[in-house]
Computed example of a mutant assay.
Amino acid sequence: MAEASSDFAGTTPVREQHRFDEARLAQWMAAHIPGFAGPMHVEQFKGGQSNPTYRLRTPGADYVLRRKPPGALLKGAHAVEREARVMAELGAVGYPVPRVHALCTDEGVIGSWFYVMDMVEGRIFWDASFSTLPRDERPAMLDAMNAALAALHRIDPAAVGLADYGRPGGYVARQLARWSQQYLDDELAGRHPAMDRLVDWLREHLPASGETAITHGDFRVDNMIFHPTEPRVLAVLDWELSTLGDPLADFAYHAMMYRMPPDILGGIAGVDLQAAGLPDEAAYVAAYCRRTGRDGIPDLDYYISFNMFRFAAILHGIKGRVARGTAASADGEVMGERFARVATIAWEQASRVHR
């Protein structure tokens, strides 16, 4: 999971707890990646709360390596093999993802499973208002995100070899059960009254099971690389939470930016949208519906409340990893502290829903 803050931009020397035998990695790269040639210089991206991520610089090309973190891991978490698979399959049909070169499941190389992909050069933005761009360029950038997510949801999983990438139907119920259990089980991270109320409310108001599509799970502005000059998404990153799921829940997570403050997920709540040159939430939802052939999203408020809960649960997990000493990012403590705030925002959102 990436962090929506420019504080996480760029690279840093590899952190002590994430170091590995770089010579051993170079040997593996030479054996498994055509065209690889050293010398290789390794840096660590500042972001990457869940899976430590590295930039591998060589004279001929730059690569990105993502690995499972060292230490005790929760069951099913940090599935880099799933990230590698979904990007390889989507890339084969032209969806904008980095090219995946190889997956390594031999822990003897760097101490955990990892995969290597291309380094995609382009623009990364840390807030969905695109405030660093001229006003007249912003709407097209926002629309490019909308188009990229709609395109993902229109892909037939079976047609791209992903029919078994998850279970059809019941996505929200399964996600609610998963994240609720992780929240309740992680005693080191503590409990919060708003989060406890959310668990009960979401269970009581669960909508009927919807359709099934390939879902990203963390689709937001800082998980995309945009073309250097055009309003176009070159690469969608961070597929750790991807699965077969409910596309409306996936879209609601993305649209949640309209109800989150700028310092959380790069949200645009409180931004004067007209002055910023941006469409309002209703127009953004309508654009997605046009692209996916829908008349509307009746349960949007529930889906947004659910996604706020899920994001709070993710922050709660980061807080727990900090307590256990396995947080991938040096800024994990800051992210963990946001848990209580997001849980409160999520409960306030749920409290406004009239069903």
Rank of each mutant, 00 (worst) to 15 (best):
Y54T: 01
L273R: 06
D250C: 12
L74C: 02
P247T: 02
L103S: 03
I264V: 15
Y54R: 13
D246H: 07
A350V: 07
L300T: 06
D280S: 02
V342P: 11
A235H: 02
E22M: 04
E333M: 12
E121T: 14
I225G: 08
M1K: 09
F311I: 13
G71L: 09
T11S: 10
A163I: 06
I124W: 00
T53Q: 09
E187P: 05
F114N: 06
A79W: 11
Q181V: 06
Q349E: 08
P157M: 14
N307S: 13
Y63G: 11
W347H: 15
P134N: 00
Y171H: 15
F306C: 01
G320W: 01
A30G: 01
L206D: 07
R324C: 11
V42I: 12
H78C: 11
H216L: 04
D218K: 14
A287E: 09
H205D: 07
I314L: 12
I214R: 07
G161F: 09
A148K: 14
W126N: 03
M1Y: 07
D21N: 08
L152G: 01
A84Y: 12
S180P: 01
N51E: 01
H354F: 11
A287W: 10
R85F: 07
L152Y: 13
T243A: 14
P98H: 12
A287G: 00
G266Y: 00
S242A: 15
R66E: 08
R135Y: 13
N223P: 04
D164K: 01
I33P: 10
Y183K: 07
Q182T: 04
R321G: 05
R355T: 01
I345W: 03
D250F: 04
A350H: 06
R338Q: 08
Y258V: 02
P298C: 00
G270T: 08
P96V: 00
S209D: 06
G245Y: 07
K319P: 13
D106S: 12
D299F: 00
R138S: 03
H227G: 02
H227N: 08
H227I: 07
I314C: 12
T11D: 13
A173P: 06
A102C: 13
R24F: 01
A276V: 05
P262Q: 05
G170N: 13
V109H: 09
L162N: 03
G270D: 13
